[in-house]
């Protein structure tokens, strides 16, 4: 009997959590672009299917425990110690899960393939290419077509796909903007591609979600999604007012540590391609192992700049 109470407790806890989270932002379940939207649909579909399974098991378990528990006055009629199985039932509970797995596999595979290409909804426009390079513990966003580069923040136009070219100068990071969609790894010596798109203007949180050491928690950035004209204005303004990024300065910025938001009117792509095997030891050549031996107390960083 006590066990039943345990289960009510769990249900109560879930209800309580739902109420508690009602007022908070839940970016994964409230996406602002088509990529996150298709992932959300998949997630909601799977939650419904999985809830069915959980309910079936809970009900069956409760039934067994109540009906077949040892209790005084229970007749021995429905006690059968030699009962050893039931092939028909076993086939049923092999086939039904197989059907469920198939039902989940089909939309999964379709979505996996879809996400390899830019979203359909903006197929009339060329995606905006942004090279997102992580280094311990900051983000460089280079716009090769616009010839500008930003550190720890990002402007993107709405209703147009963004083609992220991901790589890393050192440890493996993962670019994740929950409100826009799922993540992908940044790795040194190789380049991965991630398509995201914002349909709503706004400022979204982005971060590195893959553990990279001391400054990992602070390796975040803001994404400013804005209509195409505003984006274009920002590009022009940055081009005119921001300084150029020299190789010396870039090398300096690569040293492990935190940085504030910055912008430049040229990109680091002319100096090194971290996404190629040749570029994979660029940072180590310059900062060596010593820079990682004693990590100084971390100061600055994106959070600080925003305060």
């Amino acid at each position: 009997m006590k066990n039943k109470w345990g289960k009510y407790g769990i249900l109560l806890a879930v209800a309580f959590l739902l109420i508690l989270t009602a007022g908070c932002s839940v970016p994964v379940l409230d996406p602002k672009g088509p990529v996150g939207e298709s992932q959300k649909n998949l997630i909601v579909f799977s939650i419904i299917m999985m809830s069915l399974i959980v309910i079936v098991v809970m009900v069956a378990l409760t039934y067994m425990l109540v009906k077949f528990r040892e209790r005084p006055n229970r007749s021995d009629e429905d006690y059968d110690p030699e009962h050893e199985g039931n092939t028909k039932l076993e086939i049923i509970w092999t086939v039904i899960p197989l059907i469920i797995v198939t039902a989940l596999s089909i939309p999964t595979v379709i979505t996996i393939y879809q996400l390899e290409d830019p979203p359909q909804s903006s197929s009339d426009k060329e995606p905006l290419v942004v090279h997102a390079t992580s280094a311990d513990w900051k983000w460089f966003f280079s716009y090769p077509e616009q010839k500008i580069e930003t550190v720890n923040y990002l402007h993107i136009p709405t209703d147009r796909a963004v083609e992220f070219k991901l790589s890393s100068a050192d440890s493996m990071a993962s670019l994740w903007i929950p409100a826009l969609g799922g993540q992908k790894y940044n790795m040194a010596g190789m380049e991965t591609t991630l398509y995201l798109q914002a349909d709503e203007a706004g400022t979204y949180e982005g971060r590195n979600s893959n553990f990279t050491g001391t400054g990992f928690a602070e390796q975040t950035f803001d994404v400013h999604a804005e209509p195409a004209e505003e984006f274009q204005n920002w590009v022009e303004e940055t081009k005119q007012s921001a300084p150029e990024l020299t190789q010396d300065q870039y090398d300096e910025l690569l040293a492990p540590g935190l940085l504030q938001e910055m912008e430049f009117s040229s990109t680091h792509l002319e100096y090194v391609d971290h996404g190629s095997m040749d570029g994979s030891d660029y940072l180590i050549q310059r900062h060596g192992t010593e820079a990682f031996e004693d990590i100084p107390a971390l100061e600055g960083g994106e959070d600080v700049a925003n305060d």
């Binding site: 289960k7 769990i10 994964v28 996150g36 298709s38 992932q39 998949l42 997630i43 799977s46 939650i47 999985m50 399974i53 959980v54 098991v57 809970m58 378990l61 797995v101 989940l104 999964t108 979505t111 996996i112 879809q114 996400l115 993962s174 994740w176 929950p178 969609g181 799922g182 993540q183 992908k184 979600s209 893959n210 553990f211």
Partner: peptide
């Protein structure tokens, strides 16, 4: 049984790669 089933079904959810891009590392 109930606790593990909960872990099992969320495992299936994680197995769906396209959705996993949102769950991974969280």
């Amino acid at each position: 049984i109930p606790c593990f089933v909960l872990g099992g079904v969320t495992g299936v959810m994680l197995a769906m790669a396209a959705a996993d891009y949102q769950y991974h590392n969280t």
